[in-house]
Amino acid sequence: MRSTLTAIRNRMDRAGILLSGLCAVHCVLGIVLVGFLGLGGDIIGGQVLLSPEIHRVGLMLAVVVGVISLGFGVARHGRVAPLVIGGLGLTLMAAAILVGHGTAESVLTIIGVSLVAFAHIRNMRHTH
Rank of each mutant, 00 (worst) to 15 (best):
G89R: 00
A62K: 01
P52T: 11
G86I: 03
I97E: 10
A75L: 14
V67T: 10
G66V: 03
G78V: 09
I44L: 15
L39E: 13
L37A: 14
L59N: 02
R76S: 15
G40C: 04
R79Q: 13
V74G: 03
L83C: 01
P52L: 09
I85C: 05
L59D: 03
L49S: 12
P52H: 14
V34F: 05
V32I: 15
G86M: 03
A96P: 04
L33K: 01
Q47P: 01
V57R: 10
V99E: 09
I68G: 00
L90C: 07
T103H: 08
V64H: 06
H77Y: 10
A95G: 05
L59K: 02
V99T: 15
F72D: 08
H55Y: 11
V65I: 15
G41V: 02
G45F: 04
G41P: 00
V80M: 14
S51W: 12
M60P: 01
M60G: 13
R56V: 10
V67Q: 07
L39M: 15
P82F: 03
H101S: 12
L98G: 09
G41L: 07
F36L: 14
L70Y: 04
R79P: 02
I31M: 12
H55I: 00
H101A: 13
Q47S: 14
L61T: 05
A62N: 11
V84D: 04
L59F: 09
V74P: 04
V84L: 08
G100E: 13
L98H: 10
L59W: 07
G41R: 12
V99R: 09
H77W: 04
M60V: 15
P52S: 12
R56G: 12
V48M: 15
V99M: 10
L49W: 11
I85T: 07
L59A: 10
A94Q: 06
I54Y: 09
Q47R: 14
L59E: 06
L37S: 11
V34W: 00
M60Y: 13
V64G: 06
L59P: 01
R56I: 14
L92E: 04
M60W: 13
V34Q: 01
A81L: 14
H55G: 14
T91Q: 00
V63Q: 02
A96S: 15
H55K: 09
G73T: 01
M60A: 15
F36K: 08
G73D: 02
G58W: 00
H77K: 06
G40R: 03
L61I: 14
L61D: 08
L90W: 06
G86R: 02
G40T: 05
V64E: 02
I85V: 15
V57Y: 13
L88H: 07
G78S: 11
L33R: 07
G66C: 07
A62V: 06
I68Q: 01
V99H: 07
G78R: 15
T103N: 11
I68Y: 12
L50R: 08
A95D: 02
V32T: 13
L50T: 12
L33P: 04
V63N: 04
G73R: 01
S69P: 08
G40L: 05
I43V: 14
D42Q: 11
V48R: 11
V67P: 02
G87V: 05
G41W: 06
S69A: 15
I54E: 02
G100T: 08
Q47A: 13
G100R: 09
V64D: 03
G102P: 05
M93Y: 06
L39H: 11
V48G: 05
L50G: 13
